[in-house]
Design a protein around this nucleic acid. Sequence first.
DNA 1: CAGTATCCGGTCTGATACTG
DNA 2: CAGTATCAGACCGGATACTG
Lengths: 152, 152
Amino acid sequence: MTPRAPRSPVPLEICHLAKAIEAIGDRWTLLILRSSLFGVRRFDDYQKELGVPRTVLSGRLSKLVKAGVMAKQSYKEEGKRARPEYVLTEAGEALRPVLMALTQWGDDWLSKGATPPISFTHAKSRQRVRPGFVDEDGKETTLSEMRISLRR
Amino acid sequence: MTPRAPRSPVPLEICHLAKAIEAIGDRWTLLILRSSLFGVRRFDDYQKELGVPRTVLSGRLSKLVKAGVMAKQSYKEEGKRARPEYVLTEAGEALRPVLMALTQWGDDWLSKGATPPISFTHAKSRQRVRPGFVDEDGKETTLSEMRISLRR
DNA sequence: CAGTATCCGGTCTGATACTG
DNA sequence: CAGTATCAGACCGGATACTG
């Protein structure tokens, strides 16, 4: 276990985790990202699904666009006029594993015995897959095999 | 890419990701968890490191204890009197991979070319490790090989 | 140290209405 | 549909003070 420390080895101001928390670490933003990872793209669809106040939604989407996590685009369905949509950028899509890991944490620790409503398996082998860490060859590295290095 | 959908396939009320966001998805809570994963345990140490208002810190720690993510204990150093400390439970410790994944997301997308202040490598091979998904044999499964199943 | 209490100005939340 | 406007109330941020 981690020994007691009066403070973290990485100062807050240069910590990339702290920056990530600053960018997406609030309730509505995380819920918006959840919806968009499920394919929701339109303003009113977010609003209806989450029940988020429209003003707040507007602000959060702008912030996500400015942060480069989402992009505002136009799409056009046949015979209908163009409408805006908010889609994940590559950076946003890269959050999928993070939120999947958080989903499984919820499965494991927040739901007393309930069968998860969504589960992740390997398409062919049907084995359950879980979040972990892999090296460049795709082999798992456990926390105890891992070395955490601080830049001086 | 995920097709456009008017709403998520999993209703919010039963979504374990939504529950996880409810439990730990706010700025201060995430920052507290960051510190505690680095070994911070005492009230004033959190307060000094994060600059969080004492009232807010008090509330967040209580909430985390109630949620089973942290525990309030006593510890005693030699020759000093006992003091409280807030430590991660097993559930809290299980968040380490989630926040490590978020850290790497920050490395990859939030910091224009800056060398990460903290990095994760395999202790022996010295290869960089990244977050991913593994099956029961510890072999990586990519997102495209993965099957996402919904419970009916 | 480890909190709780208080105060104040600001932002966020939530509800509803209005517009292109 | 996709927003902006408005408004009351809650919560937050920051400061400071007080207690065991």
